[in-house]
Structures are given as structure tokens and as C-alpha cells.
């Protein structure tokens, strides 16, 4: 497919570092959009602040680069104002689970028809490598010089418990699968989330001696386990593995749709 038709070419080359996974994730989004066949005019891409949140600047959609952590609320207002619009949120792990954590679970609870893509790089990339709620215990960050000492959020578990319709996880190495999972998420009526494991060689890889971007990406091949196979494995076997695939896909009432029904009810009275 021709990716370039969806890009704002004058903004390239993009700001992401060599070997950063974010560009691979963006390609997967574009393949998904292309396969579904959405008109560019009917797509809004909304983000917070961070390296990952720079994504909207590069795509030829209606694009909204908001404040740190708040992409989901802006997207919620936009979706309610224009239910016919396809609203995609791109966010970093810090953006979505630290400062924006509350919005994430509430949007999942409402089951509003948004697709949230969280690029999990285990770190605050844009601000130079501070610890994030997704920095694995013991790993280093500029604000975790003795190693991270806090537990991580299980992003998928969190959003499933909160009520999301669709939740998946994938690495950027498995780009083809990633594109398919994003396509499923975009097609889903209701709150959908894909956690995209996207290496940050600069702010996380280096300090933790994980190698360069290409090495980190190749390493994902070793770490990934398909959801189906993971079910047959013990917790010990799954330690440090990345489970990829569709984690949940279920039919639940969608918020804006429910609201539209309330409107017709209120108007009949």
C-alpha cells in the first residue's frame, strides 16, 4: 500500500530517533485505516504530550495535539459532538497511565467508541528518560538511579476490568499482526485499546544496556508469546515475556449510542 498518501510529507523526516518503534506503529495504523477504507476527512487523531504523542502531526487527518495526559477527554468531547467521526487516540505509557490514568479507566468504563493506542516504551521518552508506571521493577531511569521500585500497571487488565470492549497487545516487531490488531480495534464499536510495545533506544535502551533500536526490536521476537500459547504456559515460563494478540473482544453497549437513544427518549416526552 501507499503510506505516503496519508502523510504530511513536508513534515518529514520525523522527529523520532533512529530505531525508535513509534514510526513502525504509525505504519501499522495507516495500514489498518487503509484496509478499512475510512475517508481522511472522517478521521480524527488525538494525542497528549510525549514522543508518541507527536504522531498526529504527521498524518493528513483532523489532528489534535492536546495537553499531557488529556487526549482521551478531548477525544471524548469530539466524539460526542461528532459521533460519525472515527476518533483515534495515540498516547505514551506515561501520558496514558500516569497523568492520564484516570481518564483511561473512565473512558473504558463508559465504553465510548474511541480507539486508544498506548505506545509503551517503559519510559518518559520526550523528557529524557524519567521513570514511568511501566518501567519494569529494577530497571533504571534518570529518576530511578537505584532501579525502579514500583509495580507496573497491567494496562490490559486495567482496561478490561474497567469495561473496554476490545483490548490487544503487540510488539512493533510483529508489525503485520500489529496492523491487524489495530484494524480490529478501529472496527470495534466501543472502547478499544491496543498496547503497542515500542522500543525507545535513546531514553530507555541505553541506560538499561538493551542495545540499539534494531537490537531491541529483534529482541521482541524472542520475548513475544501469542495469547493462545500463553494460555498453556505457567507464570514462571511467562516471566518477562510479552503476550501478544487479542486479549479481549466482547460486545457491550457503547456510550454515544446509548446517549443517542436517551435523546430520542427525551424528545418523545
Amino acid at each position: 500500500m501507499d503510506y505516503l498518501q496519508y502523510l504530511r510529507l513536508d513534515k518529514f523526516p520525523h522527529i523520532w530517533c533512529a530505531g525508535c518503534g513509534d514510526g513502525i506503529a504509525l505504519k501499522a495504523i495507516l495500514r489498518a485505516v487503509h484496509n478499512i477504507g475510512w475517508e481522511k476527512d472522517n478521521i480524527a487523531m488525538v494525542s497528549g504530550i510525549g514522543c508518541s504523542s507527536r504522531t498526529p502531526g504527521y498524518v493528513d487527518f483532523n489532528t489534535l495535539h492536546t495537553t499531557h495526559g488529556r487526549a482521551i477527554p478531548f477525544a471524548t468531547g469530539l466524539k460526542m459532538a461528532r459521533p460519525e467521526m472515527n476518533v483515534i487516540v495515540v498516547s505514551g505509557d506515561g501520558d496514558a497511565t500516569a497523568i492520564g490514568g484516570n481518564h483511561l479507566i473512565h473512558a473504558a468504563r463508559r465504553n465510548i467508541d474511541l480507539t486508544v493506542l498506548i505506545y509503551n516504551n517503559h519510559i518518559y521518552g520526550m523528557t529524557g528518560g524519567q521513570v514511568s508506571p511501566e518501567t519494569p521493577m529494577g530497571d533504571f531511569a534518570t529518576t530511578a538511579p537505584y532501579g525502579a521500585m514500583e509495580n507496573n500497571f497491567d494496562i490490559s487488565g486495567l482496561t478490561i476490568a474497567a469495561g473496554a470492549s476490545f483490548v490487544a497487545r503487540c510488539t512493533v516487531y510483529h508489525a503485520n499482526l500489529l496492523g491487524k490488531l489495530i484494524e480490529k480495534a478501529l472496527s470495534k464499536k466501543g472502547f478499544s485499546l491496543v498496547e503497542v510495545m515500542s522500543p525507545c533506544p535513546t531514553a530507555y535502551g541505553k541506560i538499561n544496556k538493551k542495545g540499539t533500536g534494531n537490537e531491541m526490536i529483534l529482541n521482541q521476537k524472542q520475548l513475544a508469546v501469542r495469547v493462545e500459547r500463553a494460555k498453556t504456559m505457567s507464570p514462571e515460563e511467562l516471566k518477562n515475556k510479552i503476550i501478544i494478540g487479542t486479549i479481549i473482544d466482547r460486545e457491550l453497549p457503547e456510550y454515544v449510542n446509548t446517549y443517542e437513544k436517551i435523546i430520542s427518549q427525551a424528545q418523545r416526552r
Binding site: C20, A175, K221
Partner: peptide, 26 residues
Amino acid sequence: MLCEQLCPDFAIIVHAPEKKKKSVSV
């Protein structure tokens, strides 16, 4: 198409003849 899908910088375009193009699933 693996290289095209995985180049983060949109720097690779692969023109593959139809019959050669087989979708990889890694």
C-alpha cells in the same frame, strides 16, 4: 514487505510483483 513494514522512517518502498508478494506473518 517485512522491511517496508518495519522501517520506522518511511524510507523503504518495496515494489513487489503481485505473485511474489506474500504476506508474512511473523
